[in-house]
Nucleic acid binder design. Structure first.
Length: 1025
RNA sequence: GGGCGGUUAGCUCAGCGGUAGAGCACUACGUUGACAUCGUAGUGGCCACUGGUUCGAUCCCAGUACCGCCCA
């Protein structure tokens, strides 16, 4: 059955994709020769909730190109595929799904266990979407090894790493100011916060000095002239977040700020609150900004937090997990009384400070933005706003009036938003788990500095260094349910420090038991904690804690309960039972697990070893780790690349990958970020449906120059679809000429005698060398460009045309063999970039031992290039180009055959002519050929080593031909001028390398030779008219 | 404010010491033994600006302007 005119991508891709998957062409080690070197790539695991976007398509195309290239070379390849559980994103999706049906219970109503089983259910149903989309793209992963960060050995690996790092002191728990997402009610890391400029306001408040004090406030201009002098009883502060003033711990001014020097150390009344705070100095306030005085709210601002720590100020938390003003704890009067005691020096601790709710009653329970409005209104009402005189005119009476209005500046402010929730992030003082990154960052920096891991483009290394050198502790706990739960358990601290053994039986008596349970007793103490892989292992630690305690506590059974509340209840129950029964065997010691889960990036940070079976020393781990190359977006260099480096080095003391290839974000044709709101999202599946996966892949490869932005243009994709069609039709032409009959795959080219055949074999070798070199250096664009130029520009534009007359001559047989081989090589070389169309052509042409995906990558070298053939073909193609160009310029109709006269021919040109006459005649549309002088009314063509004339008496417009020649002369003159200028400069000959000088000289000779021929032609024209 | 990068044909980008290339778009012509998802010929550029280094700079260095991205 003859081939169709075009490749039917929609039909063929599905069929070929199934074939590859059924035959497991991408399984680890497929097509590897014995003892082959390993080549491995870890896919950046897409979110299990996700679907394929252009970024994925781009990223995975590049990975697949490398994998296919190495696999065809017989290397032992692994492309590890899988998905990420994506804590927040997945929890969000499942909650949203549940909310669609009002009859469903909410997450909180159904509880942790039931919710998690819903998430798993959802994952089973829709988690495979993106994997199937990768298959449509043609990705040749090892599908049987598909991993998931919540399945298989991954949970164990994550827990083991946590425990190890905990034991090494690399993970700690602490109360820190973290980014709090009030929507998801969890901490998030710095990287999950997007700072966006929004319209905001700056309010100015007066904090009145305590004790009726006043001071002289002076403002000076740059020359030191006093511009303002007034007696003040207040200090003016500016804020964009008025509601936080309720938690202020101080007002800070810069130590060099002379305006406030008289009042540093004095107290001010905190408006709306019944307490006083000090005026302190700190380097943080900028004296030139606003009033130069800053209110310090340590629990709700990152800068203030640092100031508060330096000045040892209490940090009062004002909000709850949803971002509402606190409504818990003691009444305001009680809390504020205690705060005053603390301010006066009463000893306290972090936990007590955190437990004090200093939100006055009227603001309690309000949303933070509601509270803001109310605080502003109340301050205005109290006359504590900084005001300005405003003149108004009454329209009816036309009378002017002056009155004071609060100063509120409208100004853009940077506001933090959650990258998932899109709500305003609240800095919040909470207990969280941290990785002490400062302790593990060193190895990660060194590995890149000493080249164990190479990041490209190199600018990526600079970014990497800059971030790691300034790294902050990594907050790894999330108050979510979907994720790896932190392997830390807590138990009540029952250490009995005042035990008196009245009975001499070394056992607790009833009074002592009551002490344990009683108000303010042991159960109120801070809990003990232990970290271990599971509850059985952790129970050992708690038994060790219990061992030194008096009977019967030392014999208590350790049991796990849900939380501290349940633990206290169970312990009480248990002790009460004991008191009656005196049977210690029933005594239980309850422990509970930390409810938080780990940041998703903590587990994906272990992706390279986790997917290879670690902590078991599997054969895959030995073979494929460290992995060869990581291809990922530059936007996740911090999230993921740097963390994988730190984690792998900390855990297995080896780099996770040898090369990191970073690429930019895929944008639309205009360079805009693709976003749903802009409506400029291009769905790669739509592109595949319209143009085929190969066209998309080729476009991706061609765009992949190092460092640039990636602008996706469907017109360009269409162009590469056309490129596929071009190759298709070259093969179809071959088929129509019987080229494939009896042809079987051959590693080496056929012996050829016709110059065109010899030449194209050499061009094929050049293309191979270029593709190899380009892919070796990750220049996918160069590889694509070289293939495009070879297949279209050499094979189709010239070779196929040359072959047509050759098919009729004595060299028909070798031409068929050569064409088959060249097209074969084209399929092979293109296969990594365009796998579908090439696999399809492969199966419809010739006799094949293996699928193309497993066909051996060629190894022939540039020795196949024959310089004589190159020169000869250069003469032929130049001559044809010149004739065509001349014909077009003097408007010779395409259909008209012309005569050609050779005025002069060098020996080499004559030989070239003789061997290729039929090609030239055909492609330049020549009727007759003769040697001799130019007939009258000819146009002239000057080539190196030859001059030709085309007699066109009566057909040509003399003036037009003159203009044509003059134009060529002008171009030549410009070149000659430049070359002469250089050669006449003595410094050039003296300083430039010899070959450059020689080349310039030879070039000048050739140009002058051509110019002379053209001058002669012009003078001949002058004779005519 | 800090860091990284960009500025080359109408558009999107390569090139990065020997006076410019591709694809697309555009113009004219065109169905010759594969291909109109095509062919042939063509139009189009003080390589942002100012200095410096060099025999020679789009390319290296410094500065300026403008534009991105990331982090505060």
């Amino acid at each position: 059955m003859p081939m169709e005119k075009t490749f039917n991508a929609a039909e063929a891709e599905a069929r070929i994709s199934k074939l590859w998957i059924d035959q497991k062409v991408g399984r680890a080690g497929a097509n590897a020769v014995p003892g082959a070197e390993a080549f491995s790539i870890m896919i950046p695991p897409p979110n299990v909730t996700g679907s394929l976007h252009m970024g994925h398509a781009f990223n995975n195309t590049l990975q697949d190109i490398l994998i296919r290239w190495h696999r065809m070379q017989g290397h032992d390849t692994l492309w590890q595929v899988g998905t990420d559980h994506a804590g927040i994103a997945t929890q969000m999706v499942v909650e949203r799904e549940l909310a669609r049906d009002k009859s469903n219970a909410t997450r909180r109503e159904m509880g942790r266990e039931a919710f998690l089983s819903k998430v798993w259910e959802w994952k089973e149903q829709s988690g495979g979407t993106i994997i199937n989309q990768l298959k449509r793209l043609g990705a040749s992963c090892d599908w049987d090894r598909e991993a998931f960060t919540m399945s298989g050995n991954f949970p164990d690996a994550v827990v083991k790493v946590f425990v190890d790092m905990y034991n090494k002191g690399l993970i700690y728990r602490g109360k820190r100011l973290v980014n709090w997402d009030p929507h998801f009610e969890t901490a998030i890391s710095d990287l999950e916060v997007e700072n966006i400029e929004v319209k905001g306001h700056m309010w100015h408040f007066k904090y009145i000095l305590a004790g009726g004090e006043t001071y002289e406030y002076l403002e000076k201009d740059a020359e030191g002239q006093v511009t303002l002098r007034e007696k003040r009883n207040y200090i003016s502060i500016a804020t964009t977040r008025p509601e936080t003033m309720l938690g202020d711990g101080a007002v800070a001014v810069h130590p060099s700020d002379a305006r406030y020097a008289p009042i540093v150390g004095k107290m001010v009344h905190l408006p709306l609150c019944d307490r006083q705070i000090p005026i302190i100095t700190d380097e943080y306030p900028d004296p030139t900004f606003g009033s130069g005085a800053v209110k310090i709210t340590g629990a709700h601002d990152f800068n203030d937090y640092q100031v508060a720590k330096r000045a040892n100020l209490p940090m009062y938390r004002l909000m709850d997990t949803r971002g509402f003003m606190r409504a818990d704890g003691a009444p305001y009067e009680v809390a504020v009384a205690r705060a005053r005691e603390i301010a006066a020096g009463s000893p306290t601790n972090e936990n007590e400070v955190d437990s004090l709710n200093l939100v006055p009653e009227k603001y309690r329970g309000l949303d933070r933005f509601e509270a803001r409005k109310l605080v502003v209104a109340d301050i205005n009402a109290a006359g504590l706003a900084v005001t300005t005189l405003v003149r108004t005119v009454d329209e009816e009476t036309n009378s002017e009036a002056l009155h004071l209005e609060p100063v509120v500046e409208a100004k853009p402010i940077m506001q933090p938003f959650g990258d998932r929730s899109k709500v305003v992030i609240e800095p919040m003082l909470t207990d969280q788990w941290f990785v002490d990154t400062a302790k593990i960052v060193g190895l990660a920096l060194d590995a890149v500095r000493n080249g164990d891991t190479v990041i490209m483009p190199q600018s990526g290394e600079r970014t990497y260094f800059h971030w790691l050198e300034n790294i902050e502790p990594w907050c790894i706990s999330r108050q979510l349910w979907w994720g790896h739960q932190i392997p830390v358990w807590y138990g009540l601290n029952l250490d009995v420090d005042s035990f008196t053994d009245d009975e001499g039986d070394d056992a607790l008596d009833e009074v002592e038991i009551l002490n344990i349970l009683g108000d303010g007793g042991y159960v109120e103490r801070e809990a003990r904690s232990h970290c271990a892989a599971d509850s059985a292992a952790v129970a050992e630690f708690f038994r060790d804690d219990l061992a030194p305690l008096p009977h019967p506590l030392n014999a208590a059974r350790v049991v796990e309960v849900v939380d501290r509340h349940a633990a206290v209840a169970l312990l009480a129950q248990s002790l009460a039972d004991y008191n009656l029964s005196q049977d210690p065997t029933h005594l239980t010691y309850p422990i509970w697990r930390d409810p938080d889960v780990l940041d998703t990036w903590f587990s994906s940070g272990l992706w390279p070893i986790g997917t290879l079976g670690w902590p078991d020393n599997t054969p895959e781990l030995q073979k494929y780790f460290p992995t060869s190359t990581l291809i990922t977006g530059a936007d996740i260099i911090f999230f993921w690349v740097a963390r994988m480096m730190m984690m792998q080095l900390a855990v297995v003391n080896d780099v996770p990958f040898k090369t990191v290839y970073l690429h930019g974000l895929v944008r639309d044709a205009k360079g805009k970020k693709m976003s749903k709101s802009l409506g400029n999202v291009i769905d790669p599946l739509d592109i595949i449906n319209e143009f085929g996966a190969d066209a998309l892949r080729f476009a991706n490869a061609a765009m992949a120059s190092l460092g640039g932005t990636l602008k996706m243009d469907t017109q360009r994709i269409a162009g590469y679809r056309n490129f596929g069609t071009k190759l298709w039709n070259a093969c179809r032409f071959a088929e129509m000429n019987g080229v494939w009959e009896g042809y079987a795959t051959a590693a080496t080219p056929p012996t050829a005698s016709a110059t065109a055949n010899v030449w194209i074999i050499g061009e094929t070798a050049k293309a191979l060398a270029e593709v190899n070199e380009a892919l070796k250096t990750f220049r996918f664009d160069t590889a694509a460009d070289a293939l495009y130029k070879f297949v279209w520009g050499k094979v189709c534009d010239w070779y196929v045309e040359f072959a047509k007359p050759l098919f009729d001559g004595e060299q028909a047989q070798e031409t068929r063999a050569t064409m088959a081989w060249v097209l074969d090589q084209s399929m092979i070389l293109l296969h990594p970039i365009m796998p579908f169309i090439t696999e399809e052509l492969w199966s419809t042409t010739g006799t094949r031992e293996k699928l193309l995906v497993h066909t051996n990558w060629p190894t022939y070298g540039l020795d196949l290039v024959t310089p004589e053939a190159d020169r000869e073909m250069a003469f032929v193609t130049t001559l044809i180009d010149e004739i065509r160009s001349a014909r077009a310029q003097v408007h010779v109709p395409v259909g008209l055959k012309i005569d050609l006269v050779a005025m002069s021919l060098s020996a080499e040109s004559r030989a070239a002519w003789d061997r290729n006459e039929s090609l030239i005649r055909r492609l330049a549309r020549i009727e007759t050929f003769a040697e001799g002088p130019a007939p009258k009314g000819s146009i002239t063509l000057a080539l190196e080593g030859a001059t030709f004339a085309i007699p066109l008496a009566g057909l040509i417009d003399i003036a037009e031909e003159k203009a044509r020649l003059q134009k060529t002369m002008d171009k030549l003159a410009k070149e000659i001028g430049g070359l002469k200028g250089r050669l006449n400069n003595p410094a050039f000959a003296a300083s430039a390398p010899e070959e450059v000088v020689d080349e310039a000289r030879a070039n000048l000779d050739a140009r002058e030779d051509e110019a002379a021929k053209l001058r002669a032609a012009l003078s001949r024209l002058a004779e005519i008219g």
